[in-house]
Amino acid sequence: MKVLKRFLPLGLIVLAVSACSNPAADYDVQEVVNSANEQWNAAFNDNDLDSLVELYASQATLSPGNGKVLNGQQEIAALFQGFFENGLHNHQIDTISTYSSDGQISQLANWSADVEAEDGQTLTFQGVLMTVLQQNDAGDWEVVSHIWNMAE
């Protein structure tokens, strides 16, 4: 549970979406974000580490709210593996706002996730997250930056 509490600011959120291979001007921002959130939540809630990590660019950065920055898919995978081992589940993302420019979308959102405590009670963690999706040369969307915090 220590690993969980230390890194739990899991506003984890959003992800590599192969939603659109059209030129950057031809995408619907809300559709891309909704699809990314659905894919991210599904991979996380299914404990599908491979699918979850593939949503991130190879050199993506992630800060889990502890003042540190993880670099690349390998470090990101290790963090999520710890969450899975500690039973974190039922992750949800509720978008507050989106911001976009040519080939890049940022999302501000609330997040929540549950874990079973040692006494059997369900604890819900929540916070705010920010993700940056970028459209790569193939037209696919991938997470290039992901930051979250956790409410007390």
Rank of each mutant, 00 (worst) to 15 (best):
F84T: 01
T61G: 02
G82C: 01
A57N: 04
L52Y: 14
L62C: 08
A78K: 12
T95P: 00
T95M: 05
G87R: 12
H89N: 10
L62T: 03
F83T: 03
I96N: 03
T95D: 10
Q81H: 13
Q92E: 15
L79V: 06
N66C: 10
Y56L: 11
H89W: 00
Y56I: 08
T95A: 01
A78V: 13
V53K: 10
G82L: 00
L88Q: 01
P64E: 06
I93N: 08
T98S: 09
L62G: 05
F83Q: 00
F83L: 00
S58K: 10
I76K: 09
Q59E: 07
G87S: 05
L52M: 12
H91D: 13
A60N: 13
T98I: 06
H89C: 04
L62K: 09
A78E: 14
T95N: 06
A60G: 10
G67Q: 08
N90R: 09
G82S: 10
I96H: 00
S100H: 01
G82W: 02
K68S: 14
E85L: 04
S63T: 14
S58I: 14
N90T: 15
S63E: 10
L70R: 12
L52T: 08
I93A: 04
D94T: 15
L79F: 11
G87C: 00
E75N: 11
H91W: 05
E75A: 15
Q59G: 01
T61E: 03
Q74Y: 03
Q74A: 04
E75I: 10
A78S: 14
D94N: 14
S97V: 04
N86S: 01
G72T: 08
S58A: 10
Q74C: 05
V69C: 05
A78F: 07
K68L: 14
L55I: 04
S63L: 10
T61K: 07
N71K: 07
E85P: 12
L88G: 04
S100N: 11
P64R: 05
P64M: 14
A60P: 01
S63I: 09
A78P: 05
I93P: 06
Q81K: 08
E75L: 04
F80I: 04
Q81Y: 04
H91N: 10
L55W: 03
G87K: 05
H89G: 02
S100R: 07
A77Y: 02
L55G: 15
F80W: 13
Q81T: 15
N71H: 05
L55P: 00
S97C: 02
L79A: 01
A77E: 03
S63W: 11
L79H: 07
L70H: 10
I96D: 05
